[in-house]
Simulated scan of single mutants.
Amino acid sequence: MAGGDVPVHVELRTTDVAEARAFCRRLYYAALRIEPVGDPGRFDFSADVVELGPITLGEVGYGTDIRVSCGALETSYHVLAPLTGMLRSRHRGTVVLADPTRAVVYRPTGDIELDWPGSCRLLSVKVERGALERELDAALDQRVVSPLPLGASFDLVDGPGRTWMALVRLLLAELRGADGLASQPRMAARWRDMVVSGLALSVQHPYGEEPAGLQGPYRPRTVKRALDVMHAEPGRPYTTTELAAVAGVGARVLQDAFRQHVGMSPMVYLRRLRLDGVHAELSRSEPGQVSVSEVAYRWGFTHMGRFAGAYRARFGVPPSVTLRGRP
């Protein structure tokens, strides 16, 4: 992803609910709903957030009790780890009481409801869906189910969860400054990868335990080669025939392998990869800095009408709304 190793630091403190809502929708999910249920006079939103390629790290608090709800995340996995207070979460039929000893984990599917007290300030970690799934796929050298059947929470006091939490806190603190070692792209990329791989090791998943029906077959090297070149240059005008040549098989064989091991054709996967890239870049850009068309073109879209329709179908809003940062 272009610019994926360069951290982007954004922060906001406001007593305006609409401004806080727009900020969170721009950085996280367009369908996010935030409603104060406590004393509105105590609403005091503050967020200090860093975007680094496929991860978004932030420290967030609201000052008063709020209720948050959101539909399926679709494009990401998400972890909320309270620093103070307790958070009540409902997701996929499971209730989790998260506090400084336990984080709550969200998969890309299923509605989310949160009761977030004013006393709760937390670390929010958003990881793009493909990044975490590729990490487990590479570590295990096998196909993983998408979305990953992750546990609903994990321990922050003992084991890998404690180390992961410390890593996230240190990385966020380092990235807030302009002159820290982690602000250098090469180091930032390594720390970013550590956050993703550390999460894969911290959260509960069934891989390695071989429960029936959860572990898929090995993903063929032909598929991996095609995925690697698409992620290396997502804006390049690939055709199925060109990807098949890279993979060393015929076009029909590659299409069949993708449908079996990825769940979609190579061109559908590439379009989703590009759309996610455009969405991430528009989310962190200012309207005066870039235009929708130039970002779309950079990611390989040449027909703006078809691009706009595909973008709205995936994210629920036109690309211009994402760029403006308003719901």
Rank of each mutant, 00 (worst) to 15 (best):
M1G: 13
V8N: 07
E19M: 09
R26C: 07
E35V: 15
P36V: 08
G38I: 07
D39A: 11
D39H: 05
G41D: 12
G53Y: 08
E59W: 00
G61Y: 00
L73W: 04
S76D: 13
H78D: 14
V79Q: 06
G85S: 12
L87D: 09
T94G: 00
V96K: 02
R107S: 15
R107Q: 14
R107W: 01
T109R: 15
W116F: 09
G118A: 10
V125Y: 08
E128C: 00
L132G: 03
E135L: 04
L136I: 07
V144Y: 02
S153D: 14
L156W: 10
T163I: 09
L170A: 13
A188T: 08
R190P: 03
R192H: 08
V195C: 07
S202D: 04
E209D: 10
P211Q: 09
A212W: 08
A212F: 08
Q215K: 06
R221P: 01
K224Y: 03
A226L: 06
V229T: 10
V229M: 08
A232P: 02
P234A: 11
A244W: 07
V246H: 13
A247E: 06
V253A: 15
Q255P: 00
D256A: 13
R271P: 02
R271E: 11
R272P: 02
R274I: 06
R284S: 13
S291M: 04
G300F: 07
F307M: 03
A310W: 04
R312D: 03
A313W: 01
R314L: 14
G316I: 05
V317I: 14
P319R: 01
T322I: 07
L323D: 05
R324F: 05
